[in-house]
Design a protein around this nucleic acid. Structure first.
Lengths: 138, 138
DNA sequence: TCGTTTTCTTGACCCGTTCAAGAAACGGTG
DNA sequence: CACCGTTTCTTGAACGGGTCAAGAAAACGA
């Protein structure tokens, strides 16, 4: 079965605390949530949690690979638990709503720029910009 | 021959002013410059130009298609005069240095998400993240 | 040359996020 | 199972990039 929040934390070498479990649980149900939305969700469950705690947790998770952070230009960052596969994103220019898109060309090719100019490339990020169904109805 | 700054402005329906010409000229020589860098360059040529004027000019140009804006997560936006072709970018995680990369798969396919989830997609943005040659020597 | 409209100046302000200091609490150890 | 060191959380201030707002200045069609 899929590991619970406690196992995930332990495996990542992170201490098990209520805010951390709440963040993981909430993101499992609400992928592509903003830090703000996560804070709200966590507070609804635990009572009061500082903004800073939420950011600390999100950063620790991102650093250890438990979460992936997506930062669409002009919108606050969003977090998701789906990590490891290089999938891409669909972003609404208007409301920032973000959805997953599987890699267009399979797995590897997305990581191969045609000319790396001496850069050591470690990630290819693909964002599809447009309007979501809700924002289409002008 | 390639159109000069005045023609570009006129064709875009924008008034011809010293700050605008200076921004265009400077970006022609310094692609992928930040707003800050553009301001410095423009001031070096014209004496004093307000920060706001620089942002107004950059925004007007981006809106009318004279410039393209690239906003790498965690770094200030950069501007370039190469527009119209959907080329991509190589970004240094450390210093933000940005370089052009031609589209990996030719022209069209980059604009085709495998599953648009009802979104009206109008652009595909591809960013290759890594370390530039200068930042590689830790 | 005039008058309208756009653009530039100055200065305040906003948002998402991080920094800093100290209090709380996790969890390995004796 | 109580202790203590280290991590994590709280509170509150600050930051950077960028925008908003009001008015002065400059472009340009008539």
């Amino acid at each position: 079965m899929t590991p619970g929040p406690r196992e995930l934390l332990k495996d990542a070498g992170l201490r098990i605390t209520a805010p951390r479990i709440a963040v993981l649980d909430w993101l499992a149900d609400h992928p592509h949530a903003t830090a703000d939305a996560v804070a709200e969700g966590v507070r609804a469950r635990l009572g009061s949690v500082s903004t800073q705690a939420v950011y600390d947790v999100l950063n620790a998770f991102t650093r250890t690979g438990l979460l992936r952070r997506v930062e669409p230009a002009g919108h606050p960052a969003r977090y998701e638990t789906r990590t490891g596969d290089n999938h891409h994103h669909l972003v609404c220019r208007n409301c920032g709503r973000t959805e997953d898109v599987d890699c267009v060309h399979g797995a590897a090719p997305c990581l191969e720029p045609s000319n790396a100019a001496g850069f050591a490339v470690d990630e290819a990020e693909v964002l599809f910009w447009g309007l979501c169904p809700d924002c289409l109805g002008h």
